Amino acid sequence: MLTVHHLGISQSERIVWLCEELAIPYELKVYERDPVTRLGPPEYKALHPLGTAPIITDGDTVLAESTAIVEYILAKYGNGALTVPPSDPAFADYLYWFHFANGSFQPSLMRCMVLARAEVAADKPVAQFADARRKQALALVDQQLSKTAYLAGESLTAADIVAVFSLTTMRAFYPFDLSPYPNILAYLQRIGAREAYRRAMKKGDPGMTPMLT
């Protein structure tokens, strides 16, 4: 049985959502963060040497890293759903946006978050650089969504499932304003209307209202 080990308010929401979109059988185990450190509990950290979310188990397989998990589940259980084949003109877009969130966007947000928590003044060059990269990434997403309903075309793909966390729940850790990006805001309303997304968020983080505005 595929088991999703979900740490509350984390990137593992991607995996719960993926399983709900695919309508595959899975077991969900939810772990709460330590109220003081906001880190995962010892039993979560014991699952994998890094102890970071998400983690799945599937028989004897233990796998971490959200994009690796997404690829694993799609390859093993997806039957071609939520992907774009190499023969499709949108294949390169799919690959780019699938890797964009964790390759470019999420690191830019993490830099901003670390600098803010270190109380680095906003007028310092390093803070200005980090903020510029964050805004550049958001502008790129907004531009793409001015052309297509979803990141890789007119249908939801795994690229969207990977990307949405950085636009939504990540703002619980590092708040930023999406009002300059109307296409992103419209996109998030489309995401929020999806039954699979709503089920996933209710199952994984029932006490949190999805950050779609």
Score class of each variant (00 low, 15 high):
R38G: 10
I161V: 14
T57F: 07
E13T: 14
V141A: 00
A137G: 14
V126T: 13
A75I: 09
D160W: 07
Y181H: 01
T37W: 05
V84D: 05
W17F: 05
A193N: 13
E32R: 13
D58C: 02
L167E: 07
S10H: 03
P54N: 06
N183Y: 01
L178E: 01
M1L: 10
P125Q: 07
I55F: 00
I191Q: 07
A53F: 06
D123L: 11
V62N: 11
I184L: 01
L151R: 08
P25K: 00
E20A: 10
D93C: 08
D205S: 15
V62C: 12
L82Y: 07
E21P: 04
E195V: 10
L47G: 01
P182V: 03
K135N: 06
E27R: 13
P89K: 02
D88K: 04
Y187C: 02
L178P: 05
V70A: 07
W17H: 03
F173K: 10
A23R: 12
D34Y: 00
V162C: 14
Q11K: 09
L167K: 04
V114K: 07
A163T: 14
G80I: 09
R111L: 12
D34P: 02
E32Q: 14
M211Q: 13
E32I: 10
A159D: 04
D177G: 05
L178M: 02
Q106K: 12
N79L: 11
R134C: 05
L7K: 03
A64W: 09
P35I: 02
A64N: 13
S146F: 04
V141M: 00
P125D: 08
E65P: 12
V126R: 11
E154C: 11
P180M: 00
V4F: 05
P41A: 09
P125R: 08
I73Q: 03
A116K: 15
T169A: 11
L151G: 09
R111G: 10
D205M: 15
A122Y: 14
T157F: 03
R171P: 09
T83L: 04
Y96R: 15
T37V: 07
P54T: 06
A122I: 13
P25I: 01
I73T: 08
Q128I: 14
P206Q: 01
R194M: 04
R171V: 11
I56R: 06
T67S: 15
V30H: 06
K202D: 12
S108L: 09
A132C: 05
N102G: 13
I184W: 02
Y96H: 15
T213H: 13
T157L: 01
R199S: 15
Y187R: 01
D177F: 05
L2D: 03
A122V: 15
R117D: 11
V70M: 09
D142N: 00
R190Y: 02
L167V: 09
E27G: 12
L95G: 07
P125G: 06
V62G: 11
D93E: 11
A122L: 14
G40Y: 06
Y72S: 06
K203V: 08
A127G: 09
Y26D: 02
L18H: 00
R33N: 09
F176C: 09
R134G: 04
E154R: 11
N183G: 06
P42T: 08
E119V: 05
I24G: 01
Y44Q: 04
Y31A: 04
Y174M: 14
V36I: 14
T169F: 12
R38F: 12
